[in-house]
Design a protein around this nucleic acid. Structure first.
Length: 431
RNA sequence: GGGGGGUUUCCCGAGCGGUCAAAGGGGUCAGACUGUAAAUCUGAUGGCAUUGCCUUCACAGGUUCGAAUCCUGUACCCCCCA
């Protein structure tokens, strides 16, 4: 087994410790032996997103430091809905949807955690496995009995919802913390798990588990929360105009994922490097210094994007993201294959047209822009071209009369149109 | 139930019976600048067409050579008095 590293100090300098249940003993406790810990993940979708990357990375850090991480997928709790941090009652997911989601999450966790390590392998559990068999009466007697309602009402997650006049809190969601509390105790009994991690909004649920363990098992468990991953303007990290940034390549292409990190604000770059990468303190501080002197080089963002894209999408994914970036911001596109273009422009909308449109007179650029939905009318297309904002295969179009012919294809059958700096669309010409 | 005001192009908002596709602002789009940033500056912003044409100013009618602008009715909104 690897020698234990001082994980607490590591988390501390990275700013990953928001709150712990025992600041005094936790560091020495962690350094004394290999401990088992867990973090839970909600299967509200079939993929994790940037927000859940942070706790997952913390599990990874613990594993690397010699501890045993358990990733819990909330197949049962996901059926209920955690009121923490939510302003409204959740919609319930169907059992089938949950199962599919759980499978999706498992696959992603395998890329971040090591499940085959002999000494301290990561373990994946699904709380549906032990929760589904519980009868309501049993649960009320064994678990519910240990929860004073006044304590539950005092939790922030509950209190904030009760104070709102426009959103209620159902009994179901109110009970959520009992389930998560029970999970912790169950993992303690079955796996010797003594520490639970979570984002800061999980504090109430974590302490609920610690209370339950003390009452039921007379043991002292620990809790540790990390800050929420937010931007300097206070908004949540991991959202773009087009929606959430997911870890699944099917939902967010490696290119889009890479681009998200490349575009991180200078003000947020240092935090992202500390929270999400495994660069050493020296490396990160060097990047901070470089960013202060030469922000334009954006080395921090580049390193961040490369590191995370490689971690989530592998070298292959990073390669395709890099290649796509080159093309998206680079020179003329020519002599590529349909397959290559398809990969690079995976996120780009495309439209199929009969090949006959290109032959003979050819296809007018104005019509091409409209067909590709880059302009909402011919007038709009005309304007874009007149103002120098229209491109075919990344080459600016400078006349309204340009007719496109087969010679303008970037590959066997695809033409790449662009309006403005980075709004692309493909036209595919089929026989 | 009585009296008054309102409804304008994505949003706010100005509009004299002709010179109104309709001021101004916001937003959006494009360009320049730049770090694939922020800020700034410039231009564009109903549709079709190289002069011009067509459809818009709550809805339906009417007056007029001509209406977003006047009249009548309908719908919705706001305010005041019961």
């Amino acid at each position: 087994m690897s020698i234990l590293q001082d994980i607490f100090a590591e988390l501390k300098w990275r700013g990953l410790i928001h709150q712990t249940t025992d600041d005094a003993h936790l560091p020495t406790w962690l350094n004394a032996a290999s401990r088992t810990l867990y973090a839970g993940f909600d299967p509200t979708a079939d993929s994790l997103h940037v927000g859940s990357l942070m706790p997952l990375m913390i599990l990874r850090r613990f594993q690397r430091a010699g501890h045993k991480p358990i990733a819990l997928v909330g197949g049962a709790t996901g059926m209920i809905g955690d009121p923490s941090g939510k302003s409204e009652e959740r919609n319930l997911l169907s059992l089938d949807a949950l199962r599919a989601n759980v499978r999706g999450l498992e696959a992603q966790m395998r890329t971040v955690l090591d499940f085959d390590n002999a000494a301290n392998p990561a373990v994946l559990v699904n709380n549906y496995d032990w929760m589904s068999g519980f009868s309501f009466l049993e649960f009320l007697r064994d678990v519910g009995k240990n929860f004073p309602v006044n304590v539950m009402l005092a939790k922030d997650s509950v209190k904030s919802r009760l104070e709102r006049s426009d959103a209620g809190l159902s009994y179901t969601e109110f009970s959520y913390m009992l389930l998560q509390a029970y999970d912790f105790v169950h993992l303690y009994s079955q796996h010797g798990c003594e520490l639970q991690l979570g984002a800061s909004d999980q504090w109430g649920n974590i302490t609920a588990g610690i209370d339950l363990a003390r009452r039921q098992k007379s043991v002292q468990l620990y809790g540790l929360t990390c800050p929420l991953l937010t931007k300097s303007d206070g908004s949540k990290m991991g959202k773009t105009e087009s929606g959430t940034v997911w870890l699944s390549a099917a939902r967010t292409s490696p290119y889009a994922f890479y681009q998200y990190w490349i575009n991180v604000d200078d003000a947020d770059a240092g935090k992202c490097l500390r929270f999400l990468t495994e660069f050493s303190r020296e490396e990160i501080e060097a990047l901070d210094a470089a960013r202060a002197v030469e922000p334009a080089k954006r080395e921090s963002q580049r390193r961040l994007a490369e590191e995370l894209t490689r971690l989530i999408h592998d070298d292959v994914g990073l390669d395709s993201a890099r290649r796509a970036t080159e093309i998206f911001f680079g020179a003329e596109i020519r002599e590529l294959s349909d397959v290559q273009l398809g990969e690079i422009f995976a996120d780009v909308p495309s439209k199929e047209l009969p090949r006959s449109r290109l032959t003979g007179e050819g296809l007018n650029v104005i019509d091409a822009l409209v067909e590709a939905s880059l302009a909402k009318s011919k007038g709009d297309a005309r304007r874009t071209i007149e103002q120098g904002g229209a491109y075919v295969n990344n080459r600016r179009i400078d006349g309204l009369t340009k007719q496109l012919s087969p010679a303008d294809l970037a590959s066997e059958s695809v033409m790449v149109l662009r309006s403005g700096k980075k709004k692309y669309a493909l036209l595919r010409f089929r026989d």
